[in-house]
Design a protein around this nucleic acid. Structure first.
Lengths: 197, 197, 197, 197
DNA sequence: CATGAATGAGCATTCATTCAT
DNA sequence: GATGAATGAATGCTCATTCAT
């Protein structure tokens, strides 16, 4: 049993990975320490050697997800031209959500109750992602290609639209006849159109 | 104890009502058959006389929610002018979501996989609500005030935007400094702007 | 399995009895709902049908014990003559403790922490037992056979002496060569001597 | 981390000290090897290098407690006059009990059955403390100020009274309106009165 | 139509202890 | 001497569901 189980901090890695998988497979409500342990191939107790409790484990997952999303957004933000940049950012966001549904659920779809113990400070990391969009909007306003009441509000509004798109796609609520790349492009474009001058 | 408990199918009605209340008060995760029974004033066993199991009870509730939403949308759709009508529809949708917190969660944020016994066919009922928006869009296109690739796609796109708005507001993820009526109006307007000709 | 298990409220009775036995056998710290269930022959869940939680179960046991002790004290208190009455009361208390070690531990040897949730009001029942002794003392003072600073204080002082006797005997800390009826008589007499005028 | 941790047998010392502190602070039931290790600043495993198991650690502590109590009794026993000496001994015992809450619990309120691995022989150490009282009694009998059937029995009887006093005070079962120094003095005096000639 | 009694499976978490290093 | 990693067993408690009545 122990020969094919990762050792040292590799166990931490394995726990995070299996938790992510289980989240997709069973949903947050059906996630239990025992199940994670069973999936990883260790005892439930062992999880507590690497994470203080269930919350801390989830939080670690959120951190990882936020970090990854941030990296992808930073990459997309390298485009200097505001319109193209915002376009790239929006698509990067949606792409991240669709490619990482495991992360996305814990990152953005968890009830605030569940997050109570999540250190407020860490939410700042999430806010940086919004700021990247806000900057693109501000730059666009400056060069006269965008209009918005305020870049911050605009970034939030854009986020609600993109989040709705990702959420419904992940929940498979969009008519299967529509849910293709063209639809995604249309929805993203629609979300961006509102800023066009 | 039994004298003031509704009899007959009135019990079914009471169960649904109390479940709805509990859902709003305590959230989906804290919903249990026992709590419902206690609130209704009947035994837990009795619930099973009216609903096959917990899922079936939830499904009935989803149906009711869809029906309620439908009614409110139908009312909003009475406005003949397409722009005003779509505007009313969008606001009605958002209003319904914000006024029915947990209801909304059960209706739109539960993954169908986790509701596998929910007859897929019933989701069609939800589709009627989309059609109402599609009609408004089609009417607008016809009289030349809207543009969209297709009314059905447009309705879906609008839905993703509105759903994202409701979801993030319910999850309290929108910066408290922004999350007010003005923000809601801005987001809804943004979602509608894309259709303006 | 179910054929030889008591039904109805008899299960409640069985739970209380087995809990008492287990308390003597394993001690409070080793008492668990599962063990009780196993001993009774029911599921752990079933215990919760009769007692809200572990505390409530213990409290019920304390109540029973207090009631029994009270009855025996009331019987002993029928003796009209104060000296003989106090003597009878003291011996009745000690006898109760030694004959009911199961009860005695939860009644008087449980840490106050454990009792936190024990309704203060119920402690009054215990206080009545003290009052019976205080009355005997007061009567003795009145007829000039006892002296004490106050009957209440005197009753408490007597209690500490008797409780110490019972405790050490139950804990088997008294030298086995001494721990006989003569020793008990001597200790009780010693505890009473202090009141003699 | 390791530089300021005592090495060699000093660790044994540190473990005993911290265990004693934790015992007083958190109580016996909340004592765990892990907590001790954390407090000491060593690993839980290390404790096992110095103590076979938890029981052995507790036993060592009981020994120390008995030793401490013994020292305080020896000091009190320096008084040559029997009446004053017994008085000093009784107060020293009670004082020790009240000043060492949880210590006392471990020493005198743990049932030997539950400490079955504790070498019975070690309980003899406790007996020395009784002998000190017995000697005072014997001396008093000799000079004609005390009467008792036998000094050994008398010492035990006195012990039961004092133990009862300490136990009920520690358990906070004595009415708060009474539980003060005056009450303690009265109870101790009462316990001694029985020996007065 | 309704219920009280009952249950097995599950939960997050803590524990004393062991073992390879 | 000392440790980090690991574990099986246990804890109180809640859940959806069933069954005999």
């Amino acid at each position: 049993m122990s020969e094919n189980r990762p050792n040292g901090t590799a166990l931490r890695r394995a726990i995070l990975d299996e938790t992510r998988h289980l989240l997709v497979a069973d949903g947050y409500d059906n996630l239990s320490m025992r199940k994670i342990a069973r999936a990883v191939g260790c005892s439930a107790t062992s999880i507590y050697l690497h994470f203080e409790n269930k919350d801390a484990l989830i939080h670690a997952l959120i951190d990882e997800g936020m970090e990854q999303l941030h990296e992808q957004l930073v990459t997309a933000a390298k485009e200097p031209e505001p319109i193209a940049r915002l376009n790239a950012l929006a698509h990067a966001y949606v792409r991240f959500g669709l490619d990482n549904r495991e992360y996305y659920q814990v990152m953005f779809q968890l009830h605030p109750e569940r997050m109570e113990r999540y250190p407020v400070e860490k939410f700042r990391r999430a806010r940086r992602n919004l700021e990247i969009h806000a900057e693109a909007l501000a730059d666009g306003v400056e060069v006269g290609v965008f209009r918005t009441s305020s870049p911050e509000t605009g970034a939030h509004v854009l986020w609600t639209a993109l989040h709705g798109l990702v959420s419904l796609l992940l929940a498979e609520r969009v008519d299967v006849k529509l849910a293709d790349e063209a639809f995604i492009d249309a929805a993203v474009q629609h979300a961006l159109d509102g800023f066009s001058k």
